[in-house]
Amino acid sequence: MTTPIRIAVLGASGYTGADLVRLALTHPRIEIAALSANSKAGQTMAEIWPHFAPYPALPRLVTSESIDYARIDAVFGCLPHAASASLLGTLKDMKIIDLSADFRLKDAATYADWYGGAHPAPALLPAAVYGLTEFARAALPAATLTACPGCYPTAVLLALLPLVGAGAISPDRITVNALSGVSGAGRSLKEANLFPEVAEAVHPYGIGRHRHMPEMEQELARAAGRPVTISFTPHLVPMNRGELVTCIVETDRHVNDLRAILAARYADEAFVHLLPPGVAPATRMVRGSNHAVINVFADRVPGRAIVIAAIDNLVKGSSGQAIQNFNLMFGLPETMGLEQAPLFP
């Protein structure tokens, strides 16, 4: 019999934590050994998430400090930034997959600037692998700490990294307009996220300064070989999950050349798909799945192109990518536990 890999999910009462549990339940190698939610310790998952009612064997929620980590093989950190690094930095002898922002940025000063405080565990930053899976496969098998990208960076980087890396678009003038479902704002009580505030309306936020910007710029700069600054404007739209990014780029290439670069880069990928010419990516194509869809279009403005990508912000943009990284960290097939097709309608 194959020995199960015992995991702990920290922050299981949030949207990313709950989706991590949903995916882990059907993973053939995972045993969910511990679930934490400090403010809801003692409750069952079904008491706070009704869709887990058919799974009474799930562990009760406990505080993260009360978990016996000696019995855990891997920890998924689904905690807010700062809280995640403060706890995960104390853990030893296990693999860590962190879904917060705490280990994504390589520079502690940049983190402090964008997240409003000194990094709780700066000594861990050099060893953390930035887990955009399709671009991190060489590093993941030996990784002990993987930082899962944010949802917006996942979509933007999948769309643009191959083009920047090939020198096919200018890294100096990239404009991104992004749309995200309300779950991207988290589950905490916020007036701006109440139903009357978000229903039948779309609104931008983080205008000119969103915390995912330095993460995107860090990775685009690595591909470009020089600093990159982008224009990025996210919008909240009245749907539960899903994310779509529209990237306006400058290029001296024909749109067919851009298509060829993306087609070659993603030809053998299980989860990233270049759509047929003229087909616009849409969130309904990927809902509930670990898939990403991309396409590129000519702009009527000469020298510009439009690259569009869609993902599920909670799966490919968070918990699904975390399990994809987990699989490679443990030498498992990359697609294990992630084979479910998108849910539509």
Rank of each mutant, 00 (worst) to 15 (best):
V75M: 07
S64E: 13
I48S: 02
K95I: 02
A34K: 02
A109H: 12
F76V: 00
L91C: 10
A70G: 15
E31D: 14
F76K: 11
L88P: 13
D113E: 14
S100F: 01
K106I: 10
I67K: 00
S84L: 02
I97W: 01
L25S: 09
T110I: 14
S66A: 15
A46F: 05
A112S: 13
A109S: 09
L25K: 05
D73P: 07
T44R: 14
L58R: 07
A46W: 02
T44H: 12
R104F: 01
L25I: 11
I72A: 02
L79T: 02
H81F: 09
V75H: 03
A112D: 10
W49Y: 06
F52K: 09
Y115A: 03
P50M: 11
L91I: 09
W49H: 14
A108Y: 08
I30D: 13
S100C: 10
Y55C: 08
Y69P: 11
A41K: 04
A74E: 07
A82N: 12
R71P: 06
H27D: 12
S86P: 00
A46L: 04
A74N: 13
A24Q: 12
I30P: 08
G89Y: 09
L105W: 08
D107H: 04
P80L: 03
R60N: 12
V62N: 05
A82Y: 05
R71I: 02
P50C: 08
C78R: 05
L58G: 08
S66R: 07
A70M: 01
I48L: 08
T110W: 01
L79Q: 05
L87K: 03
T90N: 03
A83I: 03
R29A: 14
P50W: 07
A109V: 12
D68V: 11
P50L: 07
K92Q: 15
L87T: 06
S100R: 03
Y115P: 00
D113F: 00
A53T: 15
A112L: 04
G89F: 10
P28K: 13
D73C: 05
I97R: 00
A46V: 01
T26F: 13
A46T: 06
D73A: 04
S64T: 13
L99T: 03
T44A: 13
T44L: 00
L87D: 03
L91F: 07
L35S: 14
A24V: 07
T90V: 01
L87A: 04
Y69K: 02
L61Y: 04
A37Q: 06
T63Q: 06
G42C: 07
A70Q: 12
A33L: 11
L35F: 11
D113N: 01
A34T: 13
